[in-house]
Design a protein around this nucleic acid. Structure first.
Lengths: 347, 347
DNA sequence: TTGTATGCGTTATCAT
DNA sequence: ATGATAACGCATACAA
């Protein structure tokens, strides 16, 4: 907007060269304290603020990272971003969040920020790009995939083991005595959806339980979808006695719909969610769910990114963090079959 | 990260000057189509991407705006940002969302992005700065306050009329026959909280109903607070027959707590929310609530900002958009007393 | 310890 | 219609 002070003017006012002012600004040790004070006094007398575009251009580094998220209204992303921010602040990075609205076009447009050197790297939660595209981009730019991970040779990936988590959740229901378990998922094209579905199937197979297509329903992931699909499931000739929802948001809709039908949870139907987001405790009854270490996921993602932004030898690891089955009131309490540390019930 | 192609190299490869390449990049009409094609072919053969830091520095304009939000997990902000984005894209602006965690320190740090010329303007949802501070900043930088507005002479402000909306919601309950109405709010220091409280009081006064301190409770705004405070309200010697929650999130907690106590809504207690966020329909029963035109709020905020970023004569208006009382199942259906267009029930 | 001078990549002014 | 060249604001190699 308006003309602001530059380093030159500060230099003139302080009676030194721009180099000296620059040194003061960057905390260089090789400037006499007398001089430093003189410069500093001018700086805060005139409230000089450096134009960081100049610095960024010169250093060809912006100390900014982009976070690409499908939407802003999923609380799971909010928690992950907290982790990203925490690690980012430690290293002095700005974290910029931009929603893509799940539109490939928009995502590519936003991705141009990294191509155009406006940011030093990017963390993407759920890309609409293919693994090949991501991999190609990863060879030139610093990319980390978080949560929703596509096979790509040149990106860092941070997530939980979705397949295993879903397997364990299903086993838990089976061990509770359920023999007919419905599944409600979000977008079926998501990799995480497929992984969780695989885990579900593996559990059924292991216990020699039949897999039935009509018990597997997908929507877009809103709670309204959960409600709609739950109603459909209960209208089946042989309705399931338990429903595994692939997100807590779906599970809330599911729980509400079931209760509106006059069935009680968990007495007449068990429901299990996924993510352990805020919605899990907003549901009545509170949801048994698979906890994702959201903060740690974000922290770790940013950590990987920082490594690759600051080192020449890149690392393309596949980090998997531990999840945890959390037992609450939407399933009948009982034993938990699990080969990993299992969360305790709450409330 | 790695060395990329510059405009000079493109010029050399195309056998023209950098000026010509620049003209092509910016769609200048005064370049022969033959030349243009030659340049363009080099550009997409080598996938040249301009370093926008150079351009931004030169133009001293970044085409980016910052959105400061307390958190990322309030769906109301997600909807507002959609409006901001829509208007932003029309004018070619990038919209960068940054959470402040409600920390003044962090907000100031993020605000330095505008001081440091990294963005052209800022929209803030709920500032931790005082009106004076905002006003002072507004004289040098482009600021618009959205939703949560503090008195400031040099900022644009966009919101609904919180006082009037709360007044109408309270009148609605009174007209439904309620004489004892509790109120559950979020942070009491928020201006919007105080405005809504005023509207509530004005309605009581107008109907000559007593105002009782013990029926007014505040928390931090989480749904857990809603639950806790609702329980407290129902333990009162003379419990209210209706509760006005200052956000849908609080209302969800309230509704759940009430139902866990075995009371039915709306038969034994009416509950009304505020905002008409996703949570309003996640509650069971769905919430009667005050609808905020979230998308329009964002769109208008960005519109104001763009005006001030592109014109030398600044405008500091106080825009108030129309709200709407939405009747759903958490209050007993009936007449709606309202001197404005009232929403119809849904579902 | 400080200053001079060059370059970061781009746009835009002024010639031609 | 195109090309040289001077900024934009800052950091840094080098000289002093």
């Amino acid at each position: 907007m308006q003309k602001t002070m530059t380093i030159q003017e500060v230099a003139k006012l302080a009676g030194v060269s721009v180099a000296t002012v620059s040194r003061v600004m960057n905390g260089s040790p090789l400037v006499k304290s007398k001089t430093r004070e003189k410069v500093l006094s001018v700086i805060d007398k005139f409230e000089y603020e450096p134009n960081l575009l100049g610095r960024d251009l010169r250093r060809s580094e912006t100390m900014k990272v982009l976070v690409l998220t499908p939407n802003l209204d999923r609380s799971i992303f909010a928690d992950i971003v907290r982790g990203i921010e925490a690690r980012g602040q430690e290293a002095g990075y700005y974290v910029l969040v931009c929603p893509t609205s799940n539109a490939m076009e928009r995502e590519q447009e936003l991705f141009r920020m990294v191509k155009n050197r406006l940011v030093d790297g990017v963390i993407v939660f759920s890309s609409s790009l293919s693994g090949e595209e991501l991999s190609a981009l990863g060879q030139r730019y610093n990319i980390v995939q978080c949560c929703e991970v596509k096979e790509a040779s040149h990106t860092c990936n941070v997530s939980i083991d979705d397949e295993k988590a879903a397997y364990e959740a299903t086993c838990y229901l089976i061990n509770e005595g359920h023999r007919s378990i419905g599944l409600i998922g979000g977008l079926p094209e998501l990799h995480s959806t497929q992984l969780r579905l695989s885990g579900y199937r593996r559990a059924l197979e292991q216990y020699q339980l039949p897999y039935a297509d009509e018990r597997i329903l997908f929507g877009e992931g809103h709670h309204e979808d959960g409600a709609r699909l739950a109603q459909a499931l209960l209208k089946l000739p042989e309705p399931p006695t338990a429903i595994f929802c692939l997100s807590d948001l779906l599970a809330v809709g599911c729980v509400n719909a079931v209760r509106q039908l006059g069935r009680s949870i968990p007495e007449e139907l068990s429901v299990i969610g996924f993510d352990n987001t805020r919605e899990a405790t907003m549901a009545l009854p509170a949801l048994t769910t698979v906890h994702q270490p959201k903060y740690d996921l974000g922290y770790s993602a940013m950590d990987q990114l920082i490594h690759n932004m600051t080192n020449t030898e890149k690392r393309y690891e596949n980090v998997m963090l531990a999840h945890e089955l959390l037992e609450r009131e939407s399933t009948r309490g009982g034993l938990v079959k699990a080969d990993h540390p299992t969360g305790s019930a709450q409330g």
